[in-house]
Structures are given as structure tokens and as C-alpha cells.
Amino acid sequence: MVELILFVVLSTVVIGGALSMILGRNPVYAAMGMLATLFGLAVIYVIQLAHFVAVVQVIVYAGAVMTLFLFVIMFIGVDKAQSLDEGLAWQRPAVLGVVAAILAMVGGLVLSGRWEWITADRVALSGQVIEIPVPPNGTIESIGESLINRWLLPFEATAVLLIIASVGAIVLAFYRPRRLQSVGDDAE
């Protein structure tokens, strides 16, 4: 019962944030909607006993990645409403058509009763005694053990990846394109 209420509230927050992200006129409001989505997802992770992942999501995604997005939005100066004209004229109707088709398909399946596994309790329906696995407790100790014992190579590979990404970002930030015609640029 508690989990049902939590699921309804959190999915409202998450989907509301996602919709305001894609429909928001002002990119800063879109970033705030995305932030709401990330927070809602972090709480969902806590419900599923993935504590470490939830906290790392808040620290990395909500705390660092979205701050970076906000900085770039303010720097680029797109904080005014963007123009809505679209290059390819048929793209918007095509996208909306495809989405409508998917929703019709899914809705048809749900309404005709074939998609009962969304709303029914699988164990009770099948009648057999299935042992539902206990969700693992995602505390730091267990994640740390798993990371160093089983997933050591991906761990080291992501360390190298982070160094590469930092170096790449710095190189891109300091890159000054050399123009062959005008000499005055090299005076910088």
C-alpha cells in the first residue's frame, strides 16, 4: 500500500519532469524539469534498495552534470524562447504519427486484456510456487566488494575513460582555430 502510493507520486514527478523538459520553452526551465526527474529516479532507486546508486546519482547526475548543463545554457545565452521552425517539414508530423501508432498498439493490447502482466500479480496467477528472489541490499560494502572482486577490469577501464574525457574537454576548451588569411589572430 505504501509502495503503491510512493510509486504513483514518484512516477508523476518523474514523468512530469520529463514532459516539462521536452516541452519547456525556456531551456533553464527544461533543466529544472530534468532535475526533478533525476531526483524522482533517485528515490525510486532507494525503494529498490539500491542506496549507493541513488546517492551517486544525486551527486553525479543531479549535482554535477545538470550544473554543467546550466552553465552551458547560461553561457550560450539560449535563455530566450527558441524559434519553433523546423528544417524538415515532414519530421514533426512523422514523429507524432509514430508515437500515436505506438500508443495505439499498447493501448489496444492493454484494453483487450492481453497485457495482464502489467496489472496482475504474476505469482498468484500462475498458481505455482515461484521463489521470488530477494532484491540485493545495495550498500556500499556489497557494491565495493563486487566492484573490486568481479568487476575490476571495467572499473579500471572507466578510470582511464574519465582521464581521457577530462583531457578531451580541456583540449576542446583551449582550441583556437588558426586562420591562414588574417595574421592579427595570432597575436592572442
Binding site: 532535475l35 542506496h51 549507493f52 546517492v55 551517486v56 544525486v58 551527486i59 543531479a62 549535482g63 554535477a64 550544473t67 546550466l70 550498500t139 556500499i140
Partner: peptide, 17 residues
């Protein structure tokens, strides 16, 4: 919390906003 210290770090990241 069993992740007490990390929670503190995450909340100080939010205070930046």
C-alpha cells in the same frame, strides 16, 4: 543512514543550485 557521509556530500551538491 547507512550511507550517511555520501548523503551529506550529495546535499551539498544540491545547495550549489
Amino acid at each position: 543512514l547507512n550511507i550517511g557521509l555520501l548523503f551529506i556530500l550529495s546535499m551539498s551538491s544540491i545547495a550549489v543550485y
